[in-house]
Design a protein around this nucleic acid. Sequence first.
DNA 1: CGGGAATTTGACAGTGGTCAAGTGCCGTGG
DNA 2: CCACGGCACTTGACCACTGTCAAATTCCCG
Lengths: 208, 208
Amino acid sequence: MNSVNTKICRFAQHDVIFYEGDMADRVFEIVEGAVMLYKLLPDGRRQVVEMLGPQALFGIPAHGIYDCAAETLVPTVLRSLRRRDLEEQMDLQQHITRCLLSQMERLHDHAVLLGRKSATERVASFLFRFVANRGGVGCTGPGKGEVDEETVRLNMTRQEIADFLGLTIETVSRVFSDMKRRGVICIEKTDQIRINNVCGLCHLTGAH
Amino acid sequence: MNSVNTKICRFAQHDVIFYEGDMADRVFEIVEGAVMLYKLLPDGRRQVVEMLGPQALFGIPAHGIYDCAAETLVPTVLRSLRRRDLEEQMDLQQHITRCLLSQMERLHDHAVLLGRKSATERVASFLFRFVANRGGVGCTGPGKGEVDEETVRLNMTRQEIADFLGLTIETVSRVFSDMKRRGVICIEKTDQIRINNVCGLCHLTGAH
DNA sequence: CGGGAATTTGACAGTGGTCAAGTGCCGTGG
DNA sequence: CCACGGCACTTGACCACTGTCAAATTCCCG
């Protein structure tokens, strides 16, 4: 997405980019940073439906109105484009399709998490997302004798994590404490966690 | 999707179209019928992640392998196309994008349902999907004095409903019984339900 | 009408939610 | 440099909702 009429915008942490229901005249690509998309129920319950990183596209609505709110998790740089322009850029269509398809697969996994996983499995799956290299096929485990640890930076409050995982803040906190007690993780700072045993964590996700 | 190399296939009810993990060489469009996409956890838990009707596209994977299994809910007619051909049909790209975007919005709603709604709200939301005309903006209610009822055909077993809503079969059954007791619905046949008060049902969805 | 599967119902248990109190972290200001 | 205040997070006690397991019932179809 690097053509006419693109505009670069910078956002601070926790800035709102748009609200659900806003007229969707612009679409966005993440250049750097992270964004969450969420929906609210009238009584205030919130569900974070997607978390997006660099290269992701968002704000392309099916019907002219944003179906989610978008908010940054960290200071973020976005490239934005008028929606009309996007539609006319035929050469972009295939790129858009590809982005949407990966996001769709993530949404499917997230549905499994929300519909069928326990609190521990949800938190484990969540932490596991941050271990980049292991995302792929076949958690083969570490090379033998290798220390299988990793420190990750969440960049999300407990409330945001809870709203993403379909839990409450207290449950998220309790699961973290449990995992700490069992030696799976160390909480170095509230928002920075060392996974002592990635392979062990993987088994807690329910996917293996 | 009406070009070279398309192939029409007919499937009976509950036929499997493909399994998760199969090589994704063909993509599908629903001509007539209904299809569910689901994923399984290794211990057998299942989550239905999408239910699709006519015109929907599915089986377009981000990475060459189907990320979900696909199974018909009713006898279904599909049009299929080699994946390579689809990619080359530039004139289709915009259509694909549009389909994916609507599906994405549905997935967002489904995430809210799975992450934040109670059993009753889930079942109510589920039934509400079948009331076609009311899907849109502003459940304005029936014209005054009008009988506000509707009979819907589910075409899904209780197990399929449960796996779609992230519940157990027993909970789904109990919620149906509750609603019957409270006069919101009548269960004419296990799979055919009369909604006595659409507006009332709508209030049970949690979205109002 | 009969048989088997799907659904419903009941009793009970457990996970996660709620509400309230306690602790810790971090920035501000003295 | 340290004391203070506020906010985020953690912990505890209790409860409700939904899951589990088992039994009864109904539905569907031959």
